[in-house]
Design a protein around this nucleic acid. Structure first.
Ligand SMILES: [Mn+2]
Ligand SMILES: [Mn+2]
Ligand SMILES: [Zn+2]
Ligand SMILES: [Zn+2]
Lengths: 144, 144
DNA sequence: TCTAAATTTGTAACTATTACAGATTTATAG
DNA sequence: CTATAAATCTGTAATAGTTACAAATTTAGA
């Protein structure tokens, strides 16, 4: 549903540089993971997946990297899950659905597009997140 | 914007009983606070506001009560804030705006109504939350 | 009034996140 | 190619929100 991003080191490096982020090995690795998996991971998921390949990696580095990428608007911080924050590459605007059974988070797109809305009741809008929860397609199937 | 609920003990008690919740003094107090303030509070805000009137109150009771009211669909759990969960009485469907400067959460209503959407991409939808973030009206004014 | 069930309470445990200082790596100037 | 400074990364400790749990209290039913 969301277009596949080129996850070559060169492209990931460029994405960082374009946004003013120095492309360290750790930063490239984190962003590459987000692009490749597109699974809205937590800090811990990212850490556990990368540490086998980067044995010296620190959880703090993952936290620092995600904070930096978030500030530079390379990624967005999803508050859809109630126990930890999730991260997503900023691509074309889309919404999210979380399954209450398997906890997976899916990209979805509702018909209406409010991504252009700049203010409401005099409040200046900078970010919009539309979150849905329920039972995902797979889990529905398995229940029968 | 959202209609004022009757916050008399009698009415709050009825709201609980209708949803199958035994109306203990603590439960009535918590729900009354939510209805009266309509400020999307955290557990801690609720606790700090009630404990002067209920000196024996335990934080755990506030957690337990909110969990129970959430399960019985008396209140909804908002994941808009990134550090703690916020709670809201379930009234007419509406959306939320959080100010990044003062952190206040406002009730808002976007034009489009998707509250009737029952499924998307085959996933069964049970809850929808639309979250906006930016700078609120007051904070915008104070910046000038 | 006695007994059992439900509710509340306080403490301990757990987990996500942040603070921070020291170690390492990278960039810059001589 | 050094020497030095700046940036980045790392590991540990501290913080904060939440949950687990058992004991105490309250409430409901016999
Ligand atoms: Mn996404
Ligand atoms: Mn609200
Ligand atoms: Zn599922
Ligand atoms: Zn504000």
């Amino acid at each position: 549903m969301v277009k596949n991003e080129n996850t070559s080191t060169e492209n990931v490096k460029n994405l960082l540089v374009e946004k003013g982020v120095k492309p360290s090995f750790q930063r490239i690795s984190v962003l590459k993971y987000l692009l490749r998996e597109n699974n809205h991971p937590s800090v811990d998921t990212i850490y556990k997946n990368l540490v086998p390949y980067i044995p010296t990696l620190s959880r703090t580095t993952v936290y620092n990297t995600l904070k930096l990428l978030s500030e530079k608007e390379v990624i967005s911080t999803l508050t859809i899950n109630d126990t930890d924050l999730r991260y997503d590459f900023i691509n074309e605007p889309h919404d999210h659905f979380q399954c209450k059974t398997c906890n997976a988070i899916f990209d979805v797109k509702v018909g209406v597009d409010i991504s252009g809305l700049k203010s409401i009741d005099g409040h200046q809008i900078q970010e919009i997140q539309l979150h849905m929860k329920g039972v995902c397609r797979q889990c529905l199937k398995e229940k029968n």
